[in-house]
């Protein structure tokens, strides 16, 4: 067997082996969350490289080594799920580095991080001032997780007591001009509905590169022809405007009439409508 053949055969063999090992290891292996996964990932890679290029070595020794390392990681994952002590010993615990805006010097020393390195890690999280940090931990993987002080955390609708309508996931129903029937079924629509919607937008399905349906059943599309102007109807906004107009009209009638009972009826309904509008408003924003 000449050298060329050797490299080709060993490369193919190791591609298959590595693929099998990573498939068994799963996503966790790729995330390299723990020390052990990190080390075994590097070792498996270098064993493979070494054996493929080292022309004198026995191929199956390399495969054996990779399988052993792979099964060790697998075993480690399994035991880690079973026992917390085990996983703490092998993967290490997170270390608190900053608490209440104060750096914990002993912990920093124990992890052998310098102040410059800590600053650099913080800067990667967009923090330039240690006193902005409420709480920071050093993860086993070596990066830092930061909780900012409450006043520095970006404001959310919850802080403002703003009611927001829940928005569910969108489904991609057209890809490359083809209808994705499974996706369409999961939004509870069918081809007939899609045809009507596309007709309303004035495009044919062959022209659509990407079509998505949101949880309110609204179809939004991207066409191949980027010059094409696609109408973007906002039925929910329009409905809100109509509701408001109706409410104003009822109030106007209440002012216009002289009959007390009619006035009362209009006022009652105007109030009722206003309450309904307040309730439905978050859902009509788009």
């Amino acid at each position: 067997m000449n050298e060329w053949m050797h490299i080709i055969v060993s490369s193919v063999l190791f591609v298959v082996t590595l693929f099998a090992i990573t498939k068994i290891g799963g996503k966790k292996q790729l995330s390299e969350l723990s020390f052990f996964e990190y080390v075994s990932g590097i070792t498996i890679g270098s064993i493979a490289g070494e054996v493929i290029m080292g022309l004198d070595g026995n191929l199956f020794h390399g495969v054996l080594a990779i399988v052993i390392f792979g099964s060790f990681t697998f075993l480690h994952d399994l035991l880690g799920i079973k026992s917390k002590k085990f996983s703490e010993f092998f993967e290490g615990k997170a270390t608190v580095i900053i608490k209440d805006g104060k750096v914990m010097e002993e912990n920093l020393k124990k992890e052998k991080y310098t102040i410059d390195e800590l600053n650099s890690l913080l800067r990667q999280k967009n923090v330039f001032k240690t006193s902005d940090v409420e709480f920071a931990v050093l993860e086993p993987k070596g990066d830092i997780s930061v909780l900012l002080k409450k006043e520095l955390i970006p404001i959310t609708p919850k802080d403002l007591n703003m009611p927001v309508a829940p928005e569910k996931e969108t489904y991609t129903v057209i890809m490359d001009g083809n209808v994705m029937h499974d996706q369409l079924a999961s939004v509870g629509k069918n081809k007939g509905w899609l045809d009507i919607e596309l007709d309303n937008l004035g495009v044919t399905i062959e022209n659509v590169f990407l079509g998505q349906v949101d949880s309110y059943g609204k179809l939004s599309i991207d066409t191949y022809d980027d010059q094409l102007q696609i109408p973007s109807p906002q039925p929910r906004k329009l409905l809100l405007a109509m509701l408001n107009k109706c409410q104003a009209d009822l109030e106007l009638f209440a002012l216009g009439t002289e009959s007390t009972s009619t006035k009362e009826m209009y006022n009652k309904n105007a109030k009722k409508l206003q309450e309904a509008i307040n309730k439905v408003r978050p859902f009509l924003k788009e």
Partner: peptide, 25 residues
């Protein structure tokens, strides 16, 4: 029609309730 079209049960409920109020008016 909106209460039928949405896949979000909460939105569907609110739309339906609003529809009933509108019906009374």
């Amino acid at each position: 029609s909106m209460s039928m079209n949405t896949s979000n049960p909460e939105a569907s409920k609110i739309f339906h309730e609003t529809m009933l109020v509108i019906g009374e008016i």
